[in-house]
């Protein structure tokens, strides 16, 4: 127990192992939440009246403490990772649903008209036009959901051994070893920052069509058409 990253054996993992576990427990719920939110959001776009109640429900779900979720879930899924991940997935909906709905709604009406007039059916229009144009908004939601999920995983220590870096924090406090506490807290923060940076990179790669440094154009507020990027755009 001399090295900086040496951990007590009751954790049953190396430091990197805990980091990997933490990532898995944080990211799988976010992906599940995203996959669940996409159809829900699309329904909300199609049926306008559905959006306010759906938003209300996601907010109420978000307000349920994770401990309460655990108490209910433990009867079904036991003291497992799944019990930790289900509440995290549910929490992410409060971010994803409005992000996707706003993103899809921000597609200019004339762009949709043009798509319809060119003979794109509803499915193609959704997949080829609405979703790609909503991508920046969705990725913005993804960033918030991911960072929040990474920080929330730690509560898994409450149901025994499922908090990944959270377990390390618990160990550090019960054994009175500040090194472990710091390893846990700083490790979680660094992890969140790195993943967030990767998502920013992903957005850059996925949306080369966005004006650099400019904010996403919203529906009623088109950018001035004469904006030229760098050299030679204006002939």
């Amino acid at each position: 127990m001399n090295g900086l990253f040496d951990l007590p054996s009751d954790l049953q993992h190396s430091y990197l192992g805990l980091v990997g576990l933490h990532l898995r427990e944080a990211l799988i719920p976010v992906l599940a939440g995203l996959l669940l939110a996409l159809p829900v959001a699309q329904l909300c776009v199609r049926l306008r009246w559905l959006y306010p109640p759906v938003l209300g429900v996601t907010t109420v779900l978000y307000a349920i403490p994770s401990l309460a979720f655990f108490v209910v879930l433990i009867d079904y899924t036991g003291q497992t990772e799944t019990t930790v991940m289900i509440p995290l997935a549910v929490y992410s909906l409060v971010v994803f649903v409005p992000a996707i709905v706003d993103g899809v709604r921000s597609v200019p009406q004339e762009t949709l008209d043009a798509a319809t007039a060119m003979g794109l059916g509803p499915v193609r229009r959704y997949l080829q036009v609405q979703l790609p144009i909503a991508a920046p908004a969705i990725i913005a939601g993804l960033r918030v959901a991911t960072v929040s999920s990474i920080s929330l995983v730690s509560v898994g220590m409450l149901i025994g051994n499922q908090g990944a870096l959270g377990n390390l924090l618990y160990d550090g406090m019960s054994y009175g070893r500040p090194r472990l506490v710091w390893l846990s807290v700083i490790g979680t923060a660094v992890l969140a920052t790195v993943v967030d940076a990767l998502l920013v990179l992903l957005r850059r790669i996925l949306t080369p069509w966005m004006p650099r440094g400019a904010r996403r154009p919203s529906a009623g507020n088109r950018p001035e058409p004469a904006v030229t990027a760098g050299k030679g755009a204006a002939r």
Partner: peptide, 23 residues
Amino acid sequence: PVNTLRRSMGYVIQNAGLFQHRT
């Protein structure tokens, strides 16, 4: 079919309505 009909007619609108995410 409606989409066959539409593909046989070019459509141009105000502000062009271009797909901003495509070259």
